[in-house]
Design a protein around this nucleic acid. Structure first.
Length: 502
RNA sequence: GCCCCUAUCGUCUAGCGGCCUAGGACACCGCCCUUUCAAGGCGGCAGCGCGGGUUCGAACCCCGUUGGGGGCACCA
């Protein structure tokens, strides 16, 4: 065993980072943020991102979750250089398929004396702590470290099977964390961890560092929750180096938590923690990517809205902040709104389609008229929404047959006594209009209602807006009338007029 | 209990000893623009947890303290 703790890996050139989730549950924003920072660091440095799946817990892992992980990464636009789906020189990239490697490493580690067989049950460990007047929560006490071959044989006689524990070094372990700086873990503070169950089933404690070593990972960028497991990982890397399996210890960088409301970690109970919920609400991949990168990092003090390539150009793991960041849905939406506004008009309209389909306003196949209406109205709603999911509400009136249009209660009750007269005047003016175009519509309606009836614009146009869109709030009225067309517009005004009589 | 992390406006952050009477963004509040609602423009409110040092000088360095978070599994 080495005397000193090497904290800087001596590796071939080039940054190699990895993203290695276990496929349990639905992808959440904290997970994606971790993937994002690994990706950004790889792209910034010209290094490689490895995507590995840690599915050694058959009870909790699921194939569905695996596919959701792929879906999530692809949607937000993170690609990887090696790993599941794309292959690479270190296949396979699913730990459930790497059992032979782990068994081999375990055997070599055991033979070299870095591992030992431990027979103590958790109850026995706790009982020893109590008997000695120590805190029972102290963790494993190292009791089996000194078992002789005879001792072990005797225990086996009793039908007991040992787990394999790593012999932690008796010196302090110093980690130069890329985001937190130098951290010292006192000798003896980390109990000897179990690396394999009785029977040999490998645990995360073994498999994660072994694969990092096998895949030549140079920088381990992961969640803060794993910070306290770092000393045992460093110790394992040292042992792996000692047996010639590895060439050193990777650098570590521990990313801050993503918090929810209050002072809790963002939990799966929070709906906004689910990437897919966010996507359904209408986040743009580039908008969410932008916001997520702001959780613990900043491009500069001044620029908050930026593109993917600007992120890559500027991102450095050493600039990441160590303190937890709160996920603020309002700010996320605001950043998204900025990206919505940045979209080219045609692009924006096309991205609306899935949300209109989801709302049942259009079918699988769009009609020519629907395409035209969406493209014409797109620019009207683009500055008015922050999430694409808001679009159906604003565009619904254009994609609904005249006789199916429903006037919202609040819109209906906003009408004053003179609404009928306003609608009558609007009808006369519009029927006489030869050129059905927004500016002409505006001119004639202003003349008839504002000038002719001496009404304030808000009062004058309100009833027309309600008649045509069914709502108090809508895209700009005159453009909306133009897009809707003369026939439908007049029909809707007439319908509301008739309705007022009742 | 032990170990570790962390601390600038309500929130996310810039700041890396003098450029700081602390900058930006979100939120909030005004005003302008305006056919509704937005967008946009202009302005405002609001912060270095506390106590000691070090220094000519501290948001920045050191020590302590308090608050917050995490870990102490045959889960990952």
């Amino acid at each position: 065993m080495t005397e000193q703790t090497p904290t800087i890996a001596t590796r071939p050139s080039g940054v190699r980072v990895r993203f290695c989730p276990s496929p349990t549950g639905v992808p959440h924003v904290g997970l994606v943020r971790t993937a994002l920072f690994n990706w950004a660091y790889a792209r910034h440095t010209g290094g490689k991102l490895v995507f590995r799946i840690e599915d050694t817990d058959a009870a909790r892992d699921s194939e569905e979750s695996y596919h959701q992980l792929l879906d999530a990464l692809r949607w937000i636009g993170l690609d990887w250089d090696e790993g599941v789906e794309v292959g690479g020189p270190h296949e396979p990239y699913r730990q459930s398929q790497r059992g032979d490697l782990y068994a081999d490493v375990l055997a070599r580690l055991l033979q070299a004396g870095h591992l030992y067989e431990a027979f103590s049950t958790p109850d026995e460990v706790e009982a020893r702590h109590r008997a000695a007047g120590r805190d029972p929560k102290l963790g494993y006490d190292g009791h089996d470290r000194s078992l002789t071959a005879e001792d072990r044989a005797a225990l086996r006689e009793q039908g007991r099977e040992p787990v394999l524990r790593l012999r932690m070094p008796d010196h302090d372990i110093v980690v130069d964390d890329l985001v937190r700086g130098e951290i010292t873990f006192p000798a003896g503070a980390t109990p000897d961890p179990v690396l394999a169950r009785a029977g040999g089933a490998p645990l995360y404690t073994l498999v994660n560092p072994v694969d990092d070593a096998a895949m030549g990972i140079t920088h381990v960028l992961r969640g803060e929750d794993l910070l306290s497991s770092t000393p045992r990982q460093v110790a394992l890397h040292e042992a792996l180096t000692d047996i010639g399996f590895s060439t050193g210890v990777p650098r570590f960088g521990h990313l801050p938590y993503v918090m929810g409301d209050g002072n809790r970690k963002l939990s799966k109970r929070d709906p906004e923690s689910s990437l897919f919920v966010l996507r359904e609400r209408g986040f743009l991949p580039e908008g969410l990517l932008n916001y997520l990168s702001l959780l613990g990092w900043a491009l500069s003090g001044e620029q908050h809205v930026f593109r993917r390539d600007e992120l890559v150009a500027a991102f450095d793991i050493t600039d990441v902040v160590g303190a937890p960041a709160r996920f603020d849905l309002a700010k996320a939406a605001a950043i998204n709104g900025s990206h919505v506004r940045l979209l080219e008009a045609g692009d924006f309209s096309r991205r609306l389609v899935p949300y209109l389909q989801g709302a049942g306003l259009v079918g699988e196949e769009l009609t020519e008229a629907q395409v035209q209406a969406i493209e014409a109205a797109g620019p009207l709603v683009q500055p008015r929404i922050t999430l694409l999911g808001e679009a159906p509400g604003m565009l619904g009136f254009l994609l609904t047959p005249d006789d199916a249009l429903e006037v919202e209660g609040a819109a209906r009750s906003s009408l004053r006594e003179d609404a009928g007269a306003v609608l009558d005047a609007a009808t006369s003016a519009l029927e006489a209009l030869s050129d059905w175009e927004a500016s002409a519509i505006e001119a004639t309606l202003r003349e008839a209602l504002v000038t002719g009836m001496d009404l304030k614009p808000k009062v004058a146009f309100g009833p027309v807006r309600v008649a045509v869109t069914g709502r108090k709030v809508s895209p700009p009225l005159f453009e909306s009338l133009e897009i809707l067309g003369r026939v439908s517009s007049l029909a809707r005004i007439a319908a509301l007029r008739a309705n007022l009589e009742e």
